[in-house]
Design a protein around this nucleic acid. Structure first.
Lengths: 244, 244
DNA sequence: CAGTGGTCTAGACCACACG
DNA sequence: GTGTGGTCTAGACCACTGT
C-alpha cells in the first residue's frame, strides 16, 4: 500500500503520513469513535519505521484529531462541543454538574446568504442558506440567543423534520440526519450593549452588556459547515485563557 | 552528571529529563534568550539516547518554554506578552503595525492585600503589596485602565524609582530592576457595564460595556508574581479562539 | 568547514486492556 | 495470553547556520 499521489515528496515522511491519515479521516474512511489500524499495521502499510509512524500519530493527537489508549488502540476523536459552552459560561448547578440548556427553535427559514454569512461560510453571496433562530434556556432563564446559518445543499434534510424534534444539541443532529460531522471550530468573542430585539429575547434591561460569540464550525476536511452568532448576558460569562 | 534527587524513579526517563531541564530554567541557571546545551551534550550528561533527549525538549518546546533553531541551537524562550494585548484588542494602525500603547502610572502605593488579591497571589491576606494604577493610551485615546498588585517582598526595588521612569512595558522593568522573569500567565475575561470611576478614566458614557481582563502572571517556577485587573472599551475588543 | 538540530531506522522490552 | 500502545536505545544521514 502507498500514499495517495498528491503529496509532495520533499515533505518529511512523517508529515506525508500525517496528511494521509488526516485525509482518510476527512473522507470518513475511519469514522469518529472508530479505531485506526495499529501502529504495527501502519508500519507495514507505509513501509516506515515505528518511530516515524508514532510521530505522525503524535501530531494528530496534539491537534485533537486522534485519541490514544494504551493497550486498546488509537481512535478518531469525537469532538465535544457542549463543553465549549461551559468554557465560556459559568452556568452550572451548585453541585457543579453540567446541564445542557434546553434549545428552542424560534424560526427556520431558507434565505439568500447575507454577505457576512457568505464570506464566513466561503460561498457565493446570495446562495441559499438555512437560517435557524434559537433560544437556549436553563431553568427558565434565557441563556443564549443564537442565529445559525447552514449551507442549504448539505443540510437540506433539516427542512423535512419538525423543528420541535431537533432536540437540545444540533451537532449530533447534523451527523445523524445530514452525515455532516463537526470536527473543529473557531470562535470570536466580543461584547456590546444589547439591542432592543435581544433585550426582549434574553429578558435584559435596555443597554445591558452582552457577550457576542461568533463561531465557524468546520468538518474534518476543514470545510466550513456552520456559522452562528450567539448573544448572552455578560454577567453569566467568564472565559479562561493560558498564555505563554 | 545526574538528576537532582527529588525526581520519582518510576516516572519515564524523558519526563524526569523534562522536569530537570525545567528546573534549571526556573532557577535561572539558563536565562531567557540563552542557549541550553546541545542535544549531544545532554545525551552525555544524562546518559540517555538522543531520541529520549529530543522527546524531553519537544515537550518544553510545546509548552512554550524553549525554542529550537536548526543549525543554531535550543534557546530559553523570552515570553512576549505585548502580543497578548493585541490578541484581545484590535487597536492597530491601518498599516497593521503593532504599537505599544503609552503607559501612565497614576498611583503607586503600598497596601495590605485585599482578600481577592491575596488569594490570587497565594499569600496571606493582609500581607503588604505594591499597588499600581495605570492608564494605557494610544494616540490620545484611553485604551485600558489597569490595577496591578505585586508582592512587596519581591518588588521592593520598584519603590525606589520615580514612576515616570517606568516606561511603557512593565515586564522588562521587573526583570531589570527586580530579577523577576514572567514566564506565563492566565487570563480571565468577563464583560460588564462600566462604573462611574472607570467611565471617567476611559472617557466612556455611563453604563457603556467594558471588557474586564484579570491576569495572573507566573514565573518559570509557576510562582504567582503579579495580579492585575484591566478594563477597556468593549468595542475595541475581539478575541479569537480555536476549538477542537 | 565544524557544529547544530531534523529525519529516519530497526529493533528491544515494558505496561496495560481484554477475553 | 495475545495484542495494543509506551518507553528507550544506538546509531546513520540530511539540512541549516555561522565562521
Amino acid at each position: 500500500m502507498n500514499f495517495s499521489s498528491k503529496h509532495d515528496d520533499r515533505l518529511p515522511l512523517y508529515q506525508r503520513l500525517r496528511d494521509e491519515l488526516s485525509e482518510r479521516i476527512a473522507s470518513q474512511q475511519w469514522r469518529p469513535g472508530e479505531a485506526i489500524p495499529t501502529e504495527a499495521e501502519l508500519v507495514k502499510q507505509f513501509s516506515a519505521s515505528i518511530g516515524t509512524v508514532r510521530k505522525a500519530i503524535d501530531m494528530l493527537v496534539a491537534e485533537g484529531t486522534l485519541e490514544r489508549f494504551q493497550g486498546r488502540g488509537t481512535f478518531v476523536r469525537r469532538a465535544r462541543f457542549d463543553s465549549s459552552l461551559f468554557r465560556f459560561f459559568r452556568f452550572q448547578k451548585d453541585s457543579g454538574e453540567r446541564q445542557v440548556p434546553e434549545g428552542r427553535i424560534l424560526r427556520r427559514e431558507v434565505v439568500e446568504a447575507p454577505s457576512a454569512v457568505a464570506s464566513a461560510l466561503r460561498i457565493a453571496p446570495g446562495t441559499k442558506v438555512i437560517h435557524l433562530s434559537r433560544l437556549r434556556v436553563l431553568d427558565g432563564t434565557p441563556l443564549l440567543a443564537e442565529s445559525i446559518w447552514l449551507p442549504r445543499e448539505k443540510f437540506e434534510n433539516l427542512l423535512d423534520i419538525d423543528t420541535s424534534e431537533f432536540g437540545d444539541l444540533l451537532y449530533p443532529l447534523y451527523e445523524e440526519r445530514c452525515g455532516q460531522v463537526i470536527a473543529s471550530a473557531e470562535e470570536d468573542l466580543t461584547a456590546e450593549a444589547v439591542d432592543d430585539v435581544h433585550a426582549r429575547l434574553l429578558q435584559l434591561p435596555r443597554g445591558a452588556p452582552v457577550i457576542v460569540v461568533e463561531r465557524l464550525a468546520l468538518g474534518y476536511d476543514r470545510q466550513p459547515l456552520e456559522w452562528r452568532r450567539s448573544r448572552g448576558p455578560a454577567d453569566k460569562f467568564r472565559y479562561h485563557v493560558e498564555i505563554r
